[in-house]
Amino acid sequence: MKIKDSIEGCFQLMGGDFTNAGTASSELKSILSKLGVSQEVVRRAAIAAFEAEMNVIIHAVAGTMHYVVSSEEVRITLTDMGPGIQDIELAMQEGYSTAPDWVREMGWGAGMGLPNIKKNADRFKIDSVMGEGTTLEIVIYTRKD
């Protein structure tokens, strides 16, 4: 990889906007590919970002996806104005979901999102305040050693 200084950027996310949901992750995927990040890291970052982006679209009013790419890692931070997560441990369980029925009928909200993010991240942190919002930090190492 040929990154000297770190490269960063930010996308705006609108809650409920299913039409454009996924565009941020799709752009991030293409940015990472162009930077020469390994295919495996691109894939893991894209999947984790996409799940996190969908969480914002499904649950929050609005949010941002911020990314920093360095020669060491890809760091993706999602901050939203949303309801917050009441019980993070419970939310991490596969199959647990608070998504409404209509979201399930759109092919999402089956409680696999956070577990999928965790699986693809090397480091993963959730901070949430009820009634205010949630911040998710996803870090994926770009180097194997």
Partner: peptide, 25 residues
Amino acid sequence: SDLLSDVMAHSKDGELWITLQTHPN
């Protein structure tokens, strides 16, 4: 199907239903 509305609309009597959904509905 994993979409309940789809199963409601198209499944037939006596069919075995394969799904990923796990909730009480």
